[in-house]
């Protein structure tokens, strides 16, 4: 009786999830598959499911006169450094914000995260002017700062939430055990914060890695990132679909894997077996 009642909604749920999965995955699968097809097959009127995979688009991306390497290194460096700074500062600020006892703490926390809520378009012009005065246009530092302006408040906010979940009893126990505040942080708090740190790092990295608007505005010949390289393939004389899809694959795949990792960590959450 009971199972037959739940049977219908259950199939419905499965169907809905399947649809959603197809909706999300098909473009990505199409992109990845097509990046191994020759341009003729990609642009043919009828899509081909079976084909001989070729690596031509990838090899030409990295070998031709305009190699993708500098773009890739710029992306890795800028996203990596801005993530590192955001996580380190976010961790410290989040810990402070979570543990401090002051009036209006939630207002302070809200103000910090509210700076992350501004649309990118709204900050681009002021940042551009600022960067021009500070000679930060077409520098790695400039883009790192631009990404930090969004990632830092986000990292602080996320880390505050993770620290809020960690009972202060643990640090206090460590301090009574003879630890200084720093030792308590190093030996007790930090190891328990790994899920929070990894989650924050991956989310910050994704933001910087995927960004097009900031890179388009602030970068120059020396600092262009992968999304810019992709955009450069959209020329007035035509679109090189094969290369474009290969770049797309290079951009998306690491992030998709990282996304799965975040999910694993987030689901795992903080396992605090020692408290209660």
């Amino acid at each position: 009786m009971n199972t037959s009642k739940r049977w219908l909604p259950h199939t419905f749920k499965i169907a809905l999830l399947t649809l959603l999965l197809l909706w999300t995955l098909i473009p990505i699968i199409w992109m990845v598959l097509s990046s191994f097809k020759s341009n003729d097959i990609i642009t043919a009127g009828t899509p081909r499911v079976f084909f001989t995979p070729i690596l031509e688009h990838y090899t030409s991306l990295f070998s031709s006169g305009n190699s993708l390497w500098p773009y890739l290194l710029n992306s890795l460096f800028i996203a990596g450094v801005s993530t590192l700074i955001a996580v380190v500062l976010g961790c410290m600020a989040g810990f402070g914000l979570s543990r401090i006892r002051i009036k209006g703490k939630q207002h302070l926390a809200f103000w910090i995260i509210s700076t992350r809520m501004a649309p990118i378009a709204a900050v681009i012009v002021p940042l551009y002017l600022l960067f021009r005065y500070l000679y930060l246009l077409d520098t790695h530092a400039g883009l790192i700062v631009a990404y930090l302006s969004f990632n830092l408040p986000f990292a602080i906010w996320l880390m505050t939430a993770f620290f809020d979940d960690l009972p202060p009893d643990l640090e206090e126990a460590a301090m009574i055990d003879g630890a200084t505040k720093l030792q308590a942080f190093r030996y007790v708090v930090l190891p328990l914060m790994t899920p929070g740190l990894v989650t924050t790092a991956i989310l910050c990295f994704i933001f910087a890695w995927n960004d097009y608007a900031f890179a388009q505005t602030f970068s120059g010949p020396n600092t262009q990132t992968i999304p810019i390289a992709a955009a450069q393939l959209l020329t007035q004389t035509g679109i090189d679909w094969g290369k474009l899809l290969a770049i797309g694959t290079i951009v998306v795949c690491p992030m998709a894997i990282a996304g799965l990792l975040v999910k694993r960590w987030l689901v795992k959450g903080l396992t605090l077996g020692a408290v209660k």
């Binding site: 643990l170 206090e172 126990a173 301090m175 030996y187 007790v188 020692a274 209660k276």
Partner: peptide, 29 residues
């Protein structure tokens, strides 16, 4: 500071370090 008062405290929540074994918990100080 609490570290230098020479006291030991047992918390209501026990406050054991979740990432350490029992031996490491007891030997932490």
């Amino acid at each position: 500071g609490p570290a230098d008062r020479g006291l030991a405290m047992v918390f209501q929540s026990y406050a054991l370090y979740p990432h350490m074994s029992v031996e490491d918990n007891m030997g932490f100080s």
